[in-house]
């Protein structure tokens, strides 16, 4: 049905920076906007997207059975309980990595493209075969990184690979932003990261304890607690993906009161 499906790779290089959480929350947010969305767990080694979406008990078939033609695609797709526009295609067995080729990923994504407006691919960490397979099936990419040296360095490696494989646009999501630390200049600023990586910023996500709570429950933040800081950020990112012009949150304005005023004073540029 859809010919202009957007296939977006969600990748980071470094593990644990928030790829899967972003995939789950973007999936929910896009689905809530009425867009049919498939999230594909391409992390066959260490799959977790099912767990974050609370769908781990409803998996019958996976991408593996689809590829081996043991089941149809719609039998493997797991529809989200509350957001029927969102479906998960679970990752197969880790042993799949032995034979999985970039063309296999393309086949799966081509099938998904026929049914969905958006296909979000949750990429494995690293820059090895698992990542390369996922990249082969994608057109555009979102890089997730934290304002930390190791995460930014690994993101840079991935951006290099995306550039040589003509993936574009590549946009940046800066995750786990701590406004107070940034104000104290004890954390790389937003400009530092966008300058170093030379990427347009799709959005930033504020550090938020509620993310852990939502993971515990298997209910992405954007599903219920739309007023938590991180949930707002995820919703904004989804809207920007759809072309809406949503201004960025200014982390400096997230902290208010006398302390914040003092920190802003301390940031006054002398030279």
């Amino acid at each position: 049905m859809e010919t202009d499906t957007r296939v977006i790779l969600i990748c980071s290089g470094k593990g644990g920076v928030g790829k899967t959480t972003l995939t789950a929350n973007l999936g929910i947010s896009l689905a809530r906007q009425g867009l049919t969305t498939a999230v594909l767990d391409a992390d066959f080694g260490l799959r977790n997207l099912d767990l974050l979406l609370g769908l781990e008990n409803r998996i019958v078939y996976t991408a593996q059975e689809v590829l081996e033609e043991e089941c149809r695609l719609d039998q493997a797709l797991v529809k989200h309980k509350q957001e029927s526009n969102l479906s998960l295609l679970p990752a197969g067995n880790p042993r799949m990595l032995d034979w999985l080729k970039p063309d296999d990923m393309k086949r799966i994504v081509d099938m998904l493209k026929k049914q969905f407006n958006y296909v979000l691919i949750d990429c494995p960490a690293g820059v090895e075969d698992g990542f390369k397979n996922a990249m082969a099936a994608s057109k555009e990419a979102i890089i997730v990184t934290n304002p930390e040296v190791s995460a930014v360095r690994d993101a840079d490696r991935v951006i290099g690979l995306l550039n040589t494989n003509a993936i574009k646009p590549v946009q940046l999501v800066l995750n786990r932003v701590r406004p107070k630390m940034m104000a104290n200049q004890e954390m790389l600023s937003i400009n530092d990261v966008t300058d170093i990586l030379a990427l347009p910023l799709l959005g930033l996500v504020l550090e938020d304890e509620q993310v852990i709570v939502s993971t515990n429950r298997g209910e992405p933040l954007t599903l219920n607690s739309v007023n938590s800081p991180a949930a707002k950020c995820y919703l904004n990112i989804a809207k920007r993906l759809q072309g809406e012009d949503i201004p960025l949150i200014d982390p400096a304005e997230e902290s208010t009161g006398l302390g914040a005023k003092f920190r802003r004073l301390m940031q006054t540029k002398i030279f």
Binding site: V149, R153, D156, G160, M182, Q185, E186, D192, I196
Partner: peptide
């Protein structure tokens, strides 16, 4: 000095070599 500037300088150096 605040650590963000150190982080920025170290990153710029290491990335030049990585790239």
């Amino acid at each position: 000095p605040a650590s963000a500037s150190t982080a920025r300088e170290r990153l710029q150096l290491v990335l030049a070599h990585d790239r």
